[in-house]
Amino acid sequence: MSASTIIFYIVSALVLVFGAMSVFTRKIFRAAIYLLFSLIGIAGIYILMNMDFIAALQVLIYVGGIIVLIIFSIFLTHQAGDKLPKPLFKRIVAGASMAAFGLIVVLGVFYKTAFKVTTEAGIDHSARSIGRQMLDYHHHGYVYPFEIVSFLLLAALVGCIVIAVKIQKK
């Protein structure tokens, strides 16, 4: 077993353990913190696959953005520090069966796909290559989607302000 395989198993064990802890803890704030560690572990897996840029985005957006949003929403509730009530048995069964169903579907796809081993070089996924394609205005460039993204973000910004201001006025 090579060293990178050992690192992979350690990091994925961290992701899985923290993911399970985030599901099973009954303190909601701790669940958010465990989810944060789990997402950092996923960034570690991206780095293991040499996807530095994706790993940076994972930390920037998921760890730095989404988790902050989740923690904010937890603090909007009355009972951020309280222990949640024990889940109903019915819900445990329903959740477990849904999770099992998801696992079966994923494993089914995984075993049915004939993965081909190839010696071709993969696509260049460095930040430099992404930046070049993003700003390229020639035939195969992505400058148009790049500018459209700014409008998408603007629409999201305006939308969330409209909704939130409406809620505040109530």
């Binding site: 940076a56 957006i61 929403s73 430099r128 930046g131 969330c160």
Partner: peptide
């Protein structure tokens, strides 16, 4: 909560600025 939402939007913007800054 609005601060958090606006922050998240500009966080995504920063993600686009990074590859731009490299090239």
């Amino acid at each position: 909560y609005l601060f958090a939402l606006v922050f998240l939007l500009f966080d995504v913007e920063i993600a686009f600025l990074y590859p731009w800054a490299v090239v």
